[in-house]
Nucleic acid binder design. Structure first.
Lengths: 225, 225
DNA sequence: CATAAAATAGGGTCCACTACCCATAGGCTC
DNA sequence: GAGCCTATGGGTAGTGGACCCTATTTTATG
């Protein structure tokens, strides 16, 4: 009997292991890969073409929702189960709109995840019981949902070079010194800076600092002294 | 052979199961209880008197840190390992101050948790490698752990007004908006700003941000999504 | 190979911030 | 009252960065 191939996406390695042990309790499932952020998720799924993906909704770089969108756009036969701490309607609707077939709360027992896996692999939709009630009435009422839900995630991803520049910018170096340090023209640094700000939708240094801290590009602890 | 009794505290049931499967890989450990928030943790530990507790730092009702404080105050022989996503020094110091003997990042592999369990049960202290470096130098530098390394001498003390301004500046508000918000002239804001920078010896916004974070005037964690 | 993306570099304009002067009003202590 | 600090304003000048372009070289990718 052919086993279903599964990829696990969660930014916490220790939780990936937990998910793995839960999922391997079902002999029909075979874990063939893992990913720790959205980009990795898309890439891994593209490479391994699993039948099922468990996707943490909150991941760095690229959110689980975005990754789900890209995956279902490219490989629509892939079944995706979103794992989330949120039972809020907007999250669930976003997940379903993105193409997820299952939505399981992290508060739930592991059994539910196995139930969900079975359901979505049979082609069904699985919504965790606390969220199911929220949705069904809403779902039939609105065939088309287009709530942008105020995305503040970066629309475009930063390149490695841009992240390098961002680190130096946030350290407080003026463009002149960054240029010297990297043997670049000051103008080039300014251009990178402008590109970073455009991509992030932030328009001042403070915005860059906040983004860099929030995404772990810099560590404020190294400042605390 | 007597097995060590373990209680698992995490607000996500699905992750508790993961932790359970990780911990039961060590035959010397026996999971005797679980808790899903801080109060439950304190109560469960009081009732079951385990040898070891794994404590999620972020739990509803009562944080893992607070629960740790109460447990070690009441049952000091209880070994506690903090599980956290944060590698920030302040969190680690808080955890150690609260009485935790181990600090493991959720990003780490399950093996680390088992290592940590073994270490703290042998009476040692276990710090995850990415956090250990942050701490040790700080530790030897400070005779007393309770000093959060706060005083890094501003040459002159800031006035209350200046701290208020500093908060707004670091939030990213331009002088114009600060002036509007406080019903001041833009010029006054600029003067305050200049005075703050002179007193702190910092000459740009980033310097102010670093000072504000280091002294706790603002909390970067509130920026992290 | 063709194409796109990234990295590099530059021109020019405009504005917020910065530095360094200054003054006044109100409060406090000695 | 004298002296000092704080909060409040002003002037003037310089600078860095934000934002608007164009353009070349390198690298990745189909």
């Amino acid at each position: 009997m052919e086993r279903y191939k599964v990829v696990i996406c969660d930014d916490h390695a220790i939780y990936r292991e937990g998910l793995k042990t839960v999922l391997t309790q079902d002999p029909a499932l075979e874990i063939i890969g893992e990913a720790s952020n959205g980009y990795e998720a898309v890439e891994t799924v593209r490479r391994l073409q699993p039948d099922l993906v468990t996707m943490d909704i909150a991941m760095p770089e690229l959110s689980g929702i975005e990754a789900t969108k890209q995956i279902t756009a490219e490989l629509p036969q892939t079944r995706i189960i979103i794992l989330s701490v949120h039972s809020r309607k907007t999250f669930i609707l976003e997940a379903l709109k993105a193409g997820a077939r299952g939505y399981v709360l992290k508060d739930s027992a592991g059994e539910k995840l196995l139930d969900a896996a079975g359901s979505v692999l049979r082609g069904e939709c699985y919504l965790d019981s606390p969220v199911a009630g929220h949705i069904v009435d809403e779902y039939v009422k609105l065939p088309e949902l287009s709530t942008p839900a105020k995305e503040q995630q970066p629309q475009e991803r930063l390149t490695d070079r841009e992240r390098q520049l961002l680190r130096l910018i946030v350290e407080g170096l003026p463009n002149r010194e960054i240029a010297d340090k990297l043997c670049l023209s000051q103008k080039t640094v300014e251009n990178h800076r402008a590109n970073i700000m455009r991509k992030l939708g932030r328009h001042d240094v403070i915005g860059l600092v906040k983004y860099a801290i929030a995404t772990g590009i810099v560590d404020p602890d190294s400042w605390s002294r």
